[in-house]
Write a protein that binds this DNA or RNA. Structure first.
Length: 124
DNA sequence: AGCGTGACGAGTA
DNA sequence: ATACTCGCCACGC
């Protein structure tokens, strides 16, 4: 070869492997304690790279490998298409919800972000 | 090499 | 409370 090829250049990624950014996002998701949540933006800020949309993309593609219900929208709306599954987890974990008086009106409960949002306190 | 995309988020009306 | 706009940036065409 006329040109030296660095290993990292020659072998980008085997099929099925996650992009490194995605792996870091999933790592953070694993840190979130039961009963608490982090927003997409929080995860991005924690990482110091990417943004809410990037984190959202990663969760959409690979979220099944981690506690996906602990990474949520900043407004507390449950993940569309998985509301019941998420709700089951929140009730089981004791994650703070805003549902008082609304359940009877057919409203899907939302997360009480003020109480449920985790800032990383106590993480070792 | 660009360019469009999107499990977002903050701001505005 | 809802609806809309604009900025964000890794990733796959």
């Amino acid at each position: 070869m006329s040109q030296e090829s660095l290993p990292s250049d020659a072998v980008p990624e085997p099929p099925g492997a996650l992009p490194e950014y995605a792996e870091r996002v999933l790592e953070v998701a694993e840190l979130i304690p039961p009963g608490r949540v982090m927003t997409y933006g929080d995860v991005a800020e924690w990482l110091g790279e990417g943004g809410p949309r990037q984190v959202g993309r990663v969760m959409a593609l690979y979220g099944g490998a981690v506690p996906w219900w602990r990474v949520v929208r900043a407004d507390g709306v449950l993940l569309p298409g998985h509301e019941l599954r998420a709700l089951g987890h929140y009730r089981a974990e004791g994650t703070p919800l805003k549902e008082a008086g609304r359940a009877a009106e057919g409203h899907v409960p939302r997360l009480d972000m003020k109480r449920a949002r985790w800032d990383g306190e106590g993480h070792t």
